[in-house]
Write a protein that binds this DNA or RNA. Structure first.
Lengths: 195, 195, 195, 195
DNA sequence: AATGAATGAGGGTTCATTCAT
DNA sequence: GATGAATGAACCCTCATTCAT
């Protein structure tokens, strides 16, 4: 990569970072190209030179965001933590970014998700999912997970927790009940049957 | 209420219904006052005569929606169903409306929720919450809920399930794992300890 | 037509007149909605309230223009002038408007003309064409037109003359050769055979 | 011309050809410098290095086009065809290029034509016009043209035919009346007086 | 000489809101 | 009270042109 390309990449990054931070805070609709340009310290047209439309930019920002978010997880999966510890972190670990995400950005995120031929699905299937399955099997072997429950269901269950924990509107009321939620996660509402 | 007022109320209702249906389908941002006026068969200015701004209208629509949605629950609480059955229905019952709700409407819903002095909070505290608490205590007495877990946490847990079930982007993949999710809800990932 | 509608029609007319004069002078592309709004003394949005887009406006202006231009002809056809006189006037009569028409307006005019289901074609077939045919038959009966030549060809020939005379870029050089052109029109390049 | 200059000339040609083809198809206004650069496989700035602005480029393209178009005629004038045959060809010969010319290009062509100190006028006066005059005189001598008609008028007449034949919007309806039009050209609407 | 990158100015269009009847 | 008409502000996007390498 020569000097030209490097500068080009850097500019693209500037724009992505500016867009991402604004999208996360205000959502995609409320943020205008002009604002992104201002924060990225480029002209509006420069943005159009790199990303052909606002829609395409949003898409690229989502991809950028996923890469960024995933890298936080990769470490965790490869760590030496025990199974319950890993799971707890997955659920409660607040990605600093994700935690303040705005609903309208989330919405576009999801729209991208539901569309066919999308990047997220692919990324998910090839990188994220295998890691999770691996973790679940580990959990089943070690007796932490009821083996009669399908991996799909567990994944779903974990993701539900995880996403819900990260919803900005409920983050505040979360702390006092963390302990209880952990219990609920592991033993459900019936609770641990200690006999 | 005389004839005048009745007509007035009917017009307001027309507007609310029109706005609600559009908001649910397209979100609040993408729906213009002009469109609402058209569907409600009213002039734009009439809307402004009743609701001083679009923001206020959205607020009123949310309130209207909550009343509508709550009435579906009230029946359930007063029914003769067993505790587990009630809980299952709460979680899995798809409110036909809620199921197709658009993210941007949801977003405004949540914004309203997080603001102070809001209607939802109040409504929730005075009408919804007590019913839930009552249900949980019933569940604890009957041995269906671990009594060491706080009602706040259980409420949170239930709502998480409920809301997640209703997310339009995942509704499709839900059916095959309903059984497992029910198990997870009651016994967590560790599963029922039958010995 | 009540007061409302009358004012509405008047505003529409204001806009059409403003747009027409600008289009004729500068062409359709170079004229912005902002300029039309300014000359018509309305806001840009008002234009959009009446005409849903610039394209639609151009279309309506063309229709308006045709009606206007045609009314100049109707008189001529019904007059008591002799056949040669009528024909001469058709060819050389400078519609004050048409004479200064800008090429880009002409272009859109023609685009409208070539599209299917267009107004011009219909107008032409139902109003203009019959009048011309009538005139040609009159000319043939009176010995002014070679009866072996089809009406289509004559129409074509006349229109060619007419349109060409009105081309702004050549109007200036026209006057000194009017006489000769008349001869050419009636007798072709071979000239009158006076034996 | 050394190697450098040759390459330079070749690049200029690339640009002219690219611009011409785009202008003919889409008109001058709708074609952006970026598109020309792309088709010519050159950077935008290179275009500015050779032609100082878009307007200047358009001018040069017009000159280029005229040279190209004229060469088609030169052959015809020098051929051994009879006078009537030559004239017919001039009128009906469809220059493949000219036939699909876009109105906006034509417009700029004409604008250039009407401006003073222009190339077209000069070219016309010095190269094209003399050839036509020569032809007309030949026609008059051979009895094909009424000698009482000025050369200006005949030229005008011919050009009118020629240009009108080439108008894309009427080319289709032309074929069936070619015969009649030829008659009209030679004998006018009164027709040949054979006795 | 040639290029990729960057830009100011402007265009069409939409929208929530207000005016005037 | 209800409406059609009108608007200023903003938005996304394009373009001819210049800058910097």
């Amino acid at each position: 990569m020569d000097g030209f390309e490097r500068r080009r990449e850097q500019k693209k990054l500037q724009i992505l970072e500016a867009a991402l931070s604004l999208f996360i805070e205000f959502g995609t609709q409320k943020v205008s190209i002009a604002e992104i340009a201002k924060r990225a310290k480029v002209s509006q047209v420069t943005i159009y030179n790199y990303y052909e439309s606002k829609d395409k930019l949003i898409q690229e920002v989502i991809i950028y965001y996923i890469h960024k978010a995933w890298s936080e997880y990769e470490e965790l999966f490869q760590s030496d933590l025990t199974f319950p510890e890993k799971v707890k972190r997955i659920i409660f670990q607040k990605s600093d970014i994700a935690n303040h995400i705005h609903a309208s950005f989330f919405q576009d995120f999801m729209k991208e998700y539901t569309e066919e031929n999308n990047f997220i699905e692919e990324f998910y299937a090839e990188k994220a999912l295998p890691k999770f399955i691996e973790l679940f099997n580990e959990g089943k072997e070690q007796g932490y997970i009821d083996p009669s429950i399908s991996n799909e269901a567990i994944l779903f269950y974990i993701q539900m927790f995880k996403e819900y924990m990260q919803r900005p509107d409920i983050a505040n009321s979360l702390l006092p009940i963390t302990e209880d939620l952990t219990k609920l996660f592991f033993y459900g509402i019936v609770g641990k049957n200690e006999n």
